[in-house]
Amino acid sequence: MSLDSDAVRRIAHLARLAVDDREAEGFASALSDIFEFVETLEGADIAGVEPMAHPLDAEQRLRPDAVTETDQRDRFQQSAPSAEGGLYLVPRVIE
């Protein structure tokens, strides 16, 4: 499969990555190579095979519905690029 720059721009938009025109061309060529390689999977005989999501086919473990964490908001928000009064700050979303 071959991807062009427009396809790369669509994927980049879904992935929330800014790409300029020159980068889009580079990604188009690299991603096309990678997809061509991945397409060797076409030859696999997978009729009747169950997909495998977990190596040990484990089931999701559930924990008791109890409060176990303490409030560490201030500490965790120290990692934020911009926070104030317990809120994360971003450009205005609603006019």
Binding site: V8, I11, A15, L17, F27, L31, I46
Partner: peptide, 30 residues
Amino acid sequence: VKRRIMIGTYVLSAGYYDAYYLKAQKVRRL
């Protein structure tokens, strides 16, 4: 990292999931 994010975004996007991700998960079991 960008290449891999974009490959992943593409193979999980509507219409391509079965052709790539599901098939790969089956090959994984083989």
